Simulated assay, not measured.
Amino acid sequence: MATVTLDRLRKVYPNGHVGVDEATFEIADGELLVLVGPSGCGKTTLLRMIAGLESISSGTLSVGGRVVNEVPPKDRDIAMVFQNYALYPHMTVAQNMAFGLRLRGKPKAEIDVRVRDAAKLLELEHRLDALPAALSGGQRQRVALGRALVREPKVFLLDEPLSNLDAKLRLSMRVEIARLHRQLGTTTVYVTHDQVEAMTLGQRIVVLNGGQIQQIDTPMRLYEKPANLFVAGFLGSPAMNLLRGTLRHGSGWSLETPDGTVPLGELPAQSHELLPWIDREIVFGVRPEDLRLADADHAALSAVLEVPEPVGNEIFLNLRHGSQSLVSRVAPGALPEAGTVMHFALAHDRLHVFEPSGGTRIV
Rank of each mutant, 00 (worst) to 15 (best):
V286S: 12
G339R: 06
N313T: 09
L291P: 02
A299Y: 11
S325V: 03
L301P: 07
L274A: 09
G333M: 08
F284V: 13
N313Y: 06
A299M: 13
L293M: 11
V283L: 14
G339C: 03
L317T: 06
P332R: 13
P276C: 04
L326N: 10
E289R: 14
T340P: 01
D297A: 14
A338T: 12
V283T: 15
E289C: 02
L293S: 11
H321S: 13
L317E: 06
V286W: 02
L293Y: 01
E281L: 01
L291A: 09
A300D: 13
G339F: 02
N318G: 01
S302W: 02
L317I: 03
R292W: 00
V330Q: 15
T340C: 02
V307E: 06
R320T: 03
L326K: 10
L335V: 11
V307R: 12
V327Q: 11
G285F: 06
I278M: 11
E337Y: 00
E314H: 14
H298W: 03
G285M: 10
P308C: 09
G333T: 05
R280E: 13
A338P: 06
H298K: 11
L335D: 02
N313M: 09
P276G: 05
D290P: 00
L274Q: 08
G339P: 01
G312V: 09
V330C: 12
E306D: 11
L274P: 03
R287E: 04
Q324M: 15
D295P: 04
V330K: 12
P310K: 08
D290K: 09
I315H: 10
L319S: 03
D297P: 00
P332A: 09
F316D: 10
H298L: 07
V341T: 15
G322S: 12
A300P: 00
V286A: 15
L317C: 07
R287Q: 04
S323Q: 15
E273Q: 12
G322W: 07
L335G: 04
V304D: 07
L305N: 05
D295V: 08
P336W: 02
R287Y: 04
A300C: 15
E337S: 12
G333Q: 09
L293D: 02
L274N: 07
D295T: 10
L326D: 10
E314D: 13
E273M: 07
V341P: 01
I278A: 14
A334H: 05
L274V: 05
L326W: 08
V286R: 08
A334D: 05
R287S: 06
S323W: 02
E273W: 01
A303M: 08
A331N: 12
V327C: 14
P276A: 07
W277L: 10
D297V: 04
N318P: 00
V341E: 15
L305E: 04
N318Y: 05
N313W: 04
D297W: 00
E309Q: 11
N313R: 11
V327H: 05
E314C: 08
L301H: 07
A334I: 02
E273A: 14
S302Q: 12
P288W: 00
L317Q: 09
P336K: 04
E289Q: 15
A296W: 03
L274C: 06
S328N: 11
H321G: 09
F284T: 08
L335I: 15
L335N: 03
S323G: 11
R329T: 10
S325P: 10
I315W: 05
A303Y: 05
E306Y: 00
G285V: 07
W277Q: 07
G322Q: 12
E337Q: 08
V311Q: 15
H298M: 04
V304I: 14
